[in-house]
Design a protein around this nucleic acid. Structure first.
Lengths: 341, 341
DNA sequence: ATTAGCACTCAATTGGAATGAGTGCTAATG
DNA sequence: CATTAGCACTCATTCCAATTGAGTGCTAAT
């Protein structure tokens, strides 16, 4: 649909604008070298591209900037992945060289690297449990009043949490409860555990143990809370380096959003496997309509575990970020496969 | 050293400046009602106060603003605590009404409340372990390759972490290791565990078990990492609402700092018990020389557990923040005493 | 089909005048 | 003698008009 020349010009404009954050004029394109036409010719093409909705003009006597649609075309058709820069690879290597023996380490480090290498904000979701089932549940008493609940999933993922034990519950009762839970809940997907707890377990439990409501509510909290993936955020202040957020109010809006884990998670709802680019208003959340979000899932044995993402202005270095996310998501999968066998 | 009238005027200037963030003129003070002198008189007194270093003038024809020394005098001598506002108390109540069965919940909520009620940034440190000793160590095997390490301190505090178990370590070996560790390390303060591990445990361990270096290094990591208190941050974006940070560069500086947990912790090094106010350059960290940090420790049975703090511009609502921190630190102690018996 | 040339647009910059909040000093006042 | 009214002075801020310059669209020439 676009001529080769138009594609070249569009590409040049997007590239230039990504670099400079200033509207791009016909003259500067002509001088770049890779497009050998005169400014006048380029102007004509630009007018056409604008008519197609790929470019827009802030005001009559300014250069052009890419529209959302323009970025979309650029990302879908013009971005050539040139791989990750050598020095970036080296930096990732040294970062991950440190021996890590829990997944939070890997995910946390990944988040830090991403923001450092891109100068954007990185958002990383830990292993999700939506598609995961309970494999094993264990309670380790610590003292009269508290115990550690350990939850093992079918993926080999382990979560733990200290819980308060209500007064008047004996060790014996505990064991009964734990056994019953393992019987009933093993193999049940997490998102269904809450209802199973109420429908099947509650009745049976009341036969064996007093105070069962207390125990149930605690378990319910513990298990359902763990269901939520943990969110790691890094480089939020990088937003402020972008000229589009030199207006403090805009910046505050976005940074405020970034502080609300709940909202962040909604951003990642229904991210498909592989790499996804959401540009400006393509994001459902109005507050980040000036931003682009690029996400990549990390998978082991074809199963999607979690998501890493970069949030930046729509004027984002798509080429670099996409390459990097692709590389890193595979790296994370590799590193984490140790715990998932 | 200051006359009553000078104290009134200084107090009025600080209050006004805290409210408006604009230099305060003699006329506006005179019109407030509580200082009944004419602008001319007030001007004379202001000149004196400036000479004493309590006030300063941005430029010749502007009003006065408090100097660091002025704030200091204000905080030390002029702040009257009027307690926490009723509606704030209610808000805290509803926030804490939710049943919480792990300390992260309490601390995390406290952080959120603080930033919401003050519109500043809150920094909260979880229970410290510097003055804490190991009470009990436990390893719960999950599968061949991993186990959960549970660490109980003398304060009743519980930490846990999943660790990877090196190949070729049997359950039996494990138990031996755990028993040995409990023998040797129970009662040892955390900050000394690392050295004890090397000096006393390493030798002995090598007699019983192969691969002991692997195990040791993992344990060392696990234990020493837990030693660091967890940092909770909330309302960082509130910084941007302050006119002193309308300059994006300044804002980025501070927000950048806030993202670095290591640095944040250094801010809290050696916070004395009770409430402490550090104004502007009184902070050792140059990056926050435009800020004031107010901290309060929460203690149980006279033992200091952790610290809650508010970071804001030097032009901070000291009265309100100090009252609030005082109130909340006691509240946290109360809530947490459940787990510390 | 391409491009040189030209008139036109409009945001951004510049500089100088007007504004006004606030001061310091002096002399008058109770 | 402490207080205050009065006044000249300072200086950041605001306002406005003129200038600048990057960039466009159109037309005619190549």
């Amino acid at each position: 649909m676009l001529s080769e020349r138009q594609r070249m010009i569009l590409s040049a404009i997007v590239d230039d604008y990504i670099r400079s954050a200033e509207p791009v004029g016909s003259r500067s394109i002509s001088k770049r070298g890779d497009v050998t036409f005169s400014p006048a010719t380029i102007r004509n093409e630009m007018a056409d591209l604008e008519e197609m909705g790929l470019l827009e003009q802030p005001h009559t006597s300014a250069g052009r900037i890419p529209s959302i649609k323009g970025y979309r075309y650029y990302v879908d058709n013009l971005v050539t992945l040139d791989g990750v820069h050598d020095q970036d690879v080296r930096k990732i290597r040294t970062f991950f060289a440190e021996k890590m023996n829990h997944w939070e380490g890997v995910i946390g480090h990944a988040s830090t690297i991403l923001s450092q290498l891109t100068n954007y904000t990185s958002i990383v979701l830990g292993p999700e449990m939506f598609s995961t089932t309970l494999k094993h549940f264990q309670l380790v008493p610590i003292n009269d009043a508290s115990a550690v609940a350990i939850i093992v999933t079918n993926t080999g993922h382990v979560e733990h949490r200290t819980i308060a034990v209500p007064d008047g519950i004996s060790m014996d009762d505990m064991n009964k409860v734990v056994n019953l839970l393992n019987d009933k809940l093993a193999g049940v997907p997490f998102y269904r555990i809450k209802s199973v707890l109420h429908s099947e377990v509650a009745n049976e439990l009341s036969r064996y143990v007093d105070h069962c409501e207390d125990i149930l509510s605690i378990l319910e909290n513990t298990i359902t809370e763990e269901q939520e993936p943990k969110v790691f955020l890094s480089g939020a202040s990088n937003m402020l380096t972008q000229p589009e957020f030199k207006d403090v109010d805009k910046a505050k809006n976005i940074l405020g959003i970034l502080e609300e884990t709940q909202i962040l998670m909604r951003l990642f709802e229904s991210t498909p496997e592989g790499i996804q680019v959401k540009i400006g208003t393509e994001n459902t959340l109005a507050a980040i309509n000036q931003c682009s979000l690029i996400t990549a899932t990390y998978t082991i044995d074809g199963q999607s575990l979690g998501t890493i993402g970069i949030l930046g202005p729509t004027r984002m270095e798509y080429r670099k970020v996409i390459s990097l996310l692709d590389y890193l998501s595979k790296d994370i999968a590799l590193l984490m496969s140790r715990w998932y066998k």
